[in-house]
Write a protein that binds this DNA or RNA. Structure first.
Length: 727
DNA sequence: AGCACGCCGACT
DNA sequence: GTCGGCGTGCTC
């Protein structure tokens, strides 16, 4: 008797599967990864088969049979991967498995099915009727003629439109056996950018060709391993990926290409599509549910063998993977910030190792961890042969009473741009440039009612907004505490910087790109506006430094480059370095060359100084020394356990209880820090515990044991999430 | 998580 | 007497 071990798809931490079900003989094609609808107590729920066994520990009379098997499910390999994610990040099997199932599975009303069109097909009898003068109505004749002209088969909708016939006409013809009506699957195809001529492979430079050969050699070896493709901005890493993906396809293997969330522009997609055609499927948040489901199925069935997408595309259902590429591997969007808090780069490493695929991590600004542990391939030149632009560091300290956020050199360069044309990008490091509002009389600061942060002042539309939860309220005209009418604004926001930039540059239009304008107009529409302008300045936050390539940018400016450094985060240094280096790489990609200005209060900080010299190797080796000295990853590991609740006392009590139970079972050499309060977010009070130790495995095991014990005590209204080596 | 069961107080 | 509060246990 076949027994299916089924993990129920509920969000509950307390529900511990798997549960055994008896598989009836009649249920065919069922195996590990199949999604079943099963009776569960008085309810019916969905579950995933995680194992097929030939016996159960339970007496047969207690076993129930599944009600139904869903058509689309995951592969056994992906079930293992999903369960691994659940364990590794101390989540639940259901949440790990949800990542590898068809999109929408288990969500209320989210279950997708293929879209179909009714098609009519001319039968032999229909052809005879048409030519041998059978009795036919005018509309019936028109339909049959239309069908014959279309080669014998056509969508019913088109026939009806062309002949003026109704659905009823077709149904009558079908009843007489003159046509056959069938449902034909229709693919809901994601939109692609305007299609130009499919450009074939470009000629690779010697360095690109050598890198591609190394990737292919790895793919062909019995133990492919991992490679870091460290190429300066503009060195043509994408061409190396494309060559490697083509090699994988030639070998009958599949590939996954991960890109940062914001990097998945239609242009980037189009490049893969025009080169690899229908072999490419895309999975990203901009698709409709139907499109996502159809793309998933194309991968599952093998109709597409390459998946391009953000973080979650690491779970693409591709059998026979030969290659995984992580483009811009330093990008923070590879980390999921909700439970399970997985890191797609670590999942990629796991999947590549388990499936015998090669892993390529590409970037101009490698993370210290990757640099430390991965064989390097290097592209030192830009693909067009142009030099990297010179970077000038502007010291913003002690500027003789001038408090303009723009350095005089910045103003001069913008003015020069205004006179001679061309484009500039100005990156406003958001963290240093938010405007908060306080009372001049009593010092009252306007803050979010649901989060413990100050509200940020916006001018158009005028409002105070919370950047964490989206709360918005009108600008105050008097203090809610003391009634004073003196309300002070502190700091200069992106709006203010954009005004100052427009002033300095004179003529050219200023295009603002931040989360606010992107939400209103759309990120791509704004970039397009900038792209199409003759001369313009793009002013905005982090997103101006990502995922695009404008050849006519001659000036890049970073405002307050070190703001990132002033935050207590062990990744602050690498983030500041990447930010400046990535933005610097946007300038001077055209014949006119370019320059970069970096405004900072910390010109000597290693992250700034190395970025100014385009010296990634120097930065990373120094940063690794610092990490070693301070015992940070990759030389030690951090596991963060976060407890949240609407009720502060519950969060505090559970955090204290969890700390107690952890203290009793900590591996030797492990530190436990906390519980520490974290600022309230979206109305939820938070407490955090931090485990620090030399080895990752015992830390994760201890955290999981602690979480399981807490669940055993009943968490009620407290939720727990575990973050491994995050920040 | 749901849902049933059961054991207690405060209403018609 | 019984309606309903939520603490406890169970789901193959």
């Amino acid at each position: 008797m076949a027994i299916a071990k089924v993990e129920p798809l509920t969000t509950a931490r307390a529900l511990r599967g798997p549960f055994d079900y008896r598989l009836p003989e009649a249920m065919e094609g069922v195996g590990v990864g199949t999604v079943l609808r099963v009776p569960f107590g008085p309810r019916r729920i969905l579950g995933v088969i995680v194992e097929i066994a030939d016996r159960s520990d339970l007496p047969p009379e207690r076993l129930a049979e599944p009600l139904e098997a869903l058509e689309a499910g995951a592969t056994p390999e992906l079930v293992r991967l999903g369960l691994w994610v659940a364990r590794e990040y101390c989540s639940t099997p259901a949440r790990g498995l949800a990542l590898v199932l068809p999109p929408g599975t288990g969500r209320a009303g989210g279950r997708q099915r293929p879209a179909t069109d009714r098609h009519a097909e001319l039968t032999a009898a229909g052809r005879d009727a048409l030519h041998q003068g059978a009795r036919l109505g005018a509309k019936q004749r028109a339909v049959l003629e239309g069908l014959e002209a279309a080669g014998g088969s056509a969508p019913a909708r088109a026939l009806e439109a062309a002949s003026g016939a109704s659905t009823e006409t077709l149904r009558r013809l079908a009843a007489r056996g003159l046509v056959e009506l069938r449902l034909v699957e229709r693919r809901r195809r994601p939109e692609s950018a305007a299609v130009g001529a499919a450009h074939g492979p470009v000629t690779l430079s010697p360095a690109q060709a050598a890198a591609a050969r190394a990737v292919v050699a790895a793919m062909d070896s019995s133990k492919p391993g991992e490679l870091l493709l460290h190429g300066v901005t503009g060195s043509g890493k994408t061409e190396v990926y494309l060559a490697a993906v083509e090699a994988a396809l030639e070998r009958g293997l599949g590939a996954i290409v991960l890109v940062p969330e914001i990097g998945l522009t239609p242009q980037a997609l189009h490049r893969f599509r025009s080169r690899l055609g229908e072999d490419v499927a895309v999975l990203h948040s901009g698709l409709t549910d139907g499109q996502r489901f159809d793309e998933w199925r194309r991968l599952r069935s093998g109709a597409a063998r390459v998946c391009v997408g953000p973080r979650s595309a690491i779970f693409a259902p591709i059998a026979g993977l030969g290659l995984i590429v992580v483009d811009e591997e330093h990008d923070a969007s590879y980390k999921q910030e909700s439970d399970p808090r997985y890191d797609a780069r670590d999942v990629a490493r796991r999947r590549a190792a388990a499936g015998g695929a090669a892993l390529v991590l590409g970037t101009a600004t490698p993370r210290p961890e990757t640099w430390h542990s991965t064989t390097r391939l290097t592209l030192t030149e830009r693909a067009d042969g142009r030099p990297l632009p010179p970077v000038e560091v502007l010291d913003m300290r002690a500027r003789g009473g001038s408090f303009s956020p723009l350095h005089p050199r910045t103003r001069d360069e913008l003015a020069a741009l205004g006179r001679s044309g061309g484009k500039a990008i100005v990156l406003v490091n958001r963290r240093g440039f938010q405007v908060h509002v306080s009372c001049r009389e009593c010092g009252h600061v306007w803050s979010c009612p649901r989060c413990d942060v100050s509200l940020v002042s916006h001018r158009s539309p005028a409002a105070l907004r919370c950047h964490h939860c989206g709360h918005a309220e009108g600008l105050p005209d008097r203090c809610s505490e003391c009634g004073s009418v003196g309300v002070a604004h502190h700091g200069a926001g992106t709006e203010r910087i954009a005004e100052l930039v427009a002033e300095a540059a004179g003529g050219p239009p200023v295009v603002r790109l931040d989360s606010e304008t992107a939400g209103r107009e759309g990120h791509l529409a704004i970039l397009r506006r900038f792209h199409e302008a003759e001369s313009a300045v793009l002013v905005g936050t982090q997103m101006v430094a990502k995922g695009h390539d404008f050849p006519d940018v001659v000036l890049a400016v970073v405002i307050d480059a070190d703001a990132t450094l002033r935050f207590p985060d062990f990744r602050a240094e690498e983030r500041a370095f990447a930010l400046v280096a990535q933005l610097a790489g946007r300038s001077g990609r055209g014949p006119g060359g370019g320059s970069v200005l970096v405004q900072t209060l910390a010109p000597e900080a290693p992250a700034i100084a190395h970025a100014a010299r385009h010296d990634a190797a120097g930065f990373v080796s120094g940063e690794l020394e610092r990490r070693r000295a301070l015992r940070y990853p990759p030389f030690a590991h951090l596991v963060r356990v976060e407890l949240t609740s609407q009720r502060e006392d519950r969060a505090a009590a559970e955090a204290a209880a969890l700390a107690d139970s952890l203290r009793g079972s900590l591996p030797a050499g492990t530190e436990l820090l906390g519980p520490a309060p974290r600022f309230r977010l979206r109305g939820r009070h938070r407490r955090q515990l931090l485990l620090k130790g030399a080895e990752r495995r015992p830390l994760v095991d201890a955290a999981r044991a602690g979480v399981d014990a807490a669940v055993g005590r009943r968490l009620r209204d407290v939720t727990i999430a575990v973050d491994v080596d995050g920040s």
